[in-house]
Design a protein around this nucleic acid. Structure first.
Lengths: 358, 358
DNA sequence: TTCACATATGTGAACGATTACATATAGTAT
DNA sequence: ATACTATATGTAATCGTTCACATATGTGAA
């Protein structure tokens, strides 16, 4: 950081006090029109730029939101949520400090500490890993919004209706005449099995419930051979799509194979498409495929019918909640925690079609 | 920001002065072992967390890098570069403030100003839009690294060898016996045509040159019907893959269609794959496809042979350069600008195979 | 005339750290 | 004994803002 022009320089240049310059900067208090012009001229001539640090220190407000998330790559879901948050933040003069956690509780902890030290005005946890870390933030008095995956710690939250999304996908397939529908998703008991802290509302559970309930609704049996539950957050590059590919391989080996596959993540669906192609099976002629998220869907072959998540909106709402809290009087603090639920919509593309005749 | 424990509280709690607490915090100067323990205990007991703002204000160093980039979504390339920068930054106790520009010069300008006001220690421009904005940063004395697309403004830079990457892809195809190879890429004269500022080294030009030169090298003709040049940075969701799909459609209509397609971006290649699938053409049996970047490659059907960019490394090196500059004595300032060139590598997957017999 | 009030500007104390400098003690070489 | 040095700690200025408070002038009502 080189030598910078300060507000004192501007004041001196304009022959005024720093207080007056501040009044112009903040646009409040009494300032004569003429004086204001002088100040603006002085700012222009000196090339003054406000030092946000000093301002933040004095005002006890950094105009910065912290965003802890799984990782902006390779799963574009998080990148999109982050983008949504940033865009909304910018609208209100806020910036977002991103922190990629990659599912590591220790890293998440470091992230929270970093953000606390930087005195962010609020923290967004998109898929929090360890409730302790959420608690740490809350204990330090920072407003928190949890997104997608939420712990038992009481904070604001932005969620989506996974059950409805999952149901919509199933209704779509059944409408097309499919009766044997395979499911690839996360194992609701994954965290429990590993002794890791679980989320309050498990998205894996909700999506699976949608699958099961819709089948039941139409009197269709749930065939365990057609339900594959794997790790959900092992987002490593090929590995993850690899899961989808592997499970699909298994489905094809079943005595009475499915005519459709519902994968609860576009990446899993991508893997499924790869396996089907390798087997020379046409999509959707021989097999329909539905994904979830709407990340890779438009780019896949064939383009993927998917349960589209409003990712930008999710991030945007999270940011908005935190920003609204800033302006709100302190007294409002112990109010009820906001819990917003956004909705998905089914985006029909080329990977789904009528069930083949048998 | 609620009431916080300050260094004064810690000092009082330990019955010492703030100077001593700072000495412990900064781990320098003389502090008796016993005293140090008292301080650490006081920190523990009071739950003290350093206020980074105050520190940065005094030290004239924010331990923050600014990163202006196109957009972390939907093209995962940028997300990956950003991740690489962040990871490297974290290693040295730095944070990265991201700013998505989306190709808008005005937004980029706001980004630079925001970062300057926040007194970041350095700025990374990943695909700078307007040289004026780069100049603005430089003029303010902030160290700058330009990545990928570089303007004429003299700064440090991290680039990749596009020519070599493109050549490698072509060599690979020719080795497989392909002689009619189509090219989908960015138009080197795109910016010029639109009267927009151009980059110093045009990646579009370099990649096209690799294509042309390798064809020439093997005595193969460059057929203009097989060269499609489009907008490069219109990264809108489907639109971009749509370009790849559209151009491929055209190639198939040519009297003597190609047996391979080289697209200078995975997204374009994704579009090509979609069109081929729609036409019932097998990949790689009827047509080979090569991409560039290594973003979507593993997820496509079939998985895509691509020119892999070392995205994490690109971001990492950019961050590293800026961080090294921090520790360097001020005198080193007017030294030569670093210009690093990283190399790509061809990642062969399932989308390329021997040229079909005719 | 006097007081109240709106307008306009300045003074100096914060904000929470770091750091140059001062002070104090003990050990050691001269 | 003196002077020097290493060790240990404290004092107060400083970073660049904002803001509570003080001051000053002009205007209109009582």
């Amino acid at each position: 950081m080189r030598q910078h022009v300060t507000i004192k320089d501007v004041a001196k240049h304009a022959g005024l006090s720093t207080a007056t310059v501040t009044r112009v900067l903040q646009q409040r208090g009494y300032v004569a029109e003429e004086t204001k012009d002088q100040v603006l001229a002085a700012i222009e001539e000196t090339g003054y730029r406000v030092n946000t640090l000093a301002r933040a220190l004095r005002q006890q407000q950094t105009k910065t939101l912290g965003h802890l998330l799984h990782c902006i790559s390779p799963n574009p879901f998080f990148a999109r949520v982050a983008l949504g948050a940033e865009k909304e933040a910018h609208r209100y003069g806020y910036n977002v400090l991103l922190y990629n956690v990659e599912g590591d509780p220790a890293e998440e902890r470091r992230g929270v500490e970093t953000l606390l030290d930087r005195r962010v005005d609020g923290i967004i946890f998109t898929t929090a890993v360890d409730p302790e870390n959420v608690q740490l933030a809350v204990s330090n008095g920072v407003p928190v919004v949890q997104v997608e995956r939420i712990t038992h710690v009481e904070t604001h939250a932005v969620l989506i209706d996974n059950y409805a999304g999952s149901s919509a996908a199933m209704e779509h397939l059944i409408e097309l005449g499919h009766e044997r529908i395979a499911y690839i998703g996360g194992d609701p008991h994954y965290y429990q099995k590993r002794g890791e802290p679980t989320s309050y509302r498990l998205i894996e559970e909700e999506r699976l419930a949608g699958y099961v309930d819709v089948l039941n609704k139409y009197g269709l049996p749930v065939d365990k051979q057609l339900v594959a539950l794997g790790e959900y957050y092992s987002m490593e590059d090929g590995g993850f799509a690899g899961d989808g590919a592997l499970y699909t391989e298994e489905f094809l080996g079943v005595a009475n194979p499915p005519t459709a596959i519902f994968a609860t993540c576009d990446i899993l669906a991508a893997g499924a498409l790869q396996t089907l192609y390798r087997h020379g099976l046409g999509v959707p002629d021989d097999m329909s495929v539905v994904g979830f998220d709407g990340t890779y869907a438009p780019f896949l072959t064939p383009s993927l019918t998917t349960v589209q998540q409003p990712m930008l909106e999710i991030g945007g709402r999270a940011a908005q909640i935190l920003i609204e809290l800033q302006d709100a009087p302190e007294s409002e603090e112990p109010a009820v925690q906001r819990r917003e639920q956004l909705t998905t919509y089914l985006s029909v593309r080329s990977s789904t079609g009528p069930a083949p005749d048998r």
